[in-house]
Design a protein around this nucleic acid. Structure first.
Lengths: 205, 205
DNA sequence: ATAATAAACAACAGGTTGTTCGTTATTATA
DNA sequence: TATAATAACGAACAACCTGTTGTTTATTAT
């Protein structure tokens, strides 16, 4: 058999397409991009694009899925420790190291992440990223820690609050030049989440 | 003069266009919509559309600006009280009534809001909404209350956190059928923001 | 009643989209 | 290294959407 994806021409082509995509999202926004834009920038024939992807959405989805898969892997790796820590009196250590790992991954893929999470990015990715956080929070035996009867607000809103807040901070970090280290970002997020926004603002003791 | 926008034909046409737009965003998402879709649904000639708007983005922008203007009006109206309350020991009363007013407004315009803030909506509107919250928080003499030296985290991340969190909760509310009252939603948001997510989850006393 | 003008209708060039040819160039492998 | 497989190319296609324009019809304000 010879139908593998190891043909150098395929690898080269796909890489050119991805590079072109990231550049173009930054320049004109994902939705304004045409397949012709991509192939012109990637210096390949338009027909070649359609040999690999159905359309620009298919391309984007496949790209995003790889990113999500990797983030999921990192999360799964660190989650047992997080669950264990949440029950204790110092619920910041394990979540902190998970956050650091994720920020390091974002840092490595900052070209794509900045483009896709930016103001000209892809709304569906942000939606999927929130879904991912939902499932990560809800699906991982958190029920063992967080009991419905202890919640002061409906669970769905609490999760939406936390997930959106975290993504918002990530976006701000990416768009303002990633000047803080992954460690510092993890500290910022856990400070606000553990103590609350008002405390972090110095308005509450 | 007769160049006013009071001609019944104009009013009828613009209303048809807006109704069609909201319907179509819900069905196929803003970006997938063509001008032809809109005019077919609105039962008007395509040329008529171009007599009023440059393209679908122009239509969307004008629609959104009216919404933003109204939200800004509501915010400005309630802000003096919010500023005053933040300094006191009960910093929830005035912000609470502002939140109620805003949720009531969202409720009135739920067709548009649900469409535009939903997963098939308009990313640029969400970006503009965050900018609006930024300016509302930063620009309104908050400096008199929030002092940079008291912040435990950089101000830009704190604001991004709060703004994104609030929008996320609003989205969740709109997409899950708006079953809670504006009052209840205001309570939920202030509970999490004042006491912090971990406290609201029952994980902290 | 009538002048003003919004909306409809029709046609236009220019652009993008998928798709399909035959041809050329590159690759994997024996 | 020779060769069979196949990726990529170039060109062409109908179908569709976009703005725009000129003409005609219908509605509106006064």
């Amino acid at each position: 058999m010879r139908d593998n994806n190891s043909d150098l021409r395929v690898i080269r082509t796909k890489e050119s397409i991805r590079d072109a995509l990231v550049e173009l999202i930054d320049e004109k926004g994902f939705e304004a991009i045409t397949v012709k834009d991509i192939t012109t920038r990637a210096k390949i024939n338009r027909g070649t694009f359609y040999a690999h992807y159905q359309d620009k959405y298919d391309l984007m989805t496949k790209f995003e899925e790889e990113i999500m898969f990797e983030m999921s892997r990192i999360a799964k790796q660190n989650f047992p420790g997080v669950i264990a820590a949440l029950g204790t009196n110092s619920p910041t250590l394990a979540p902190f190291s998970l956050a650091v790992s994720l920020f390091e991954y974002l840092n490595e893929n900052n070209g794509f992440m900045k483009a896709v999470l930016g103001p000209k990015g892809d709304l569906s990715f942000q939606t999927r990223l929130k879904d991912f956080m939902w499932k990560t929070i809800y699906g991982n035996d958190v029920n063992a820690i967080i009991k419905e009867e202890n919640l002061l607000v409906p669970g769905q809103y609490l999760i939406s609050y936390i997930a959106s807040a975290h993504i918002g901070v990530i976006q701000q970090w990416l768009n303002s030049g990633m000047k803080e280290s992954p460690q510092e970002m993890a500290r910022i997020l856990s400070t606000i989440t553990v103590n609350g926004p008002l405390f972090a603002a110095g308005l509450k003791k």
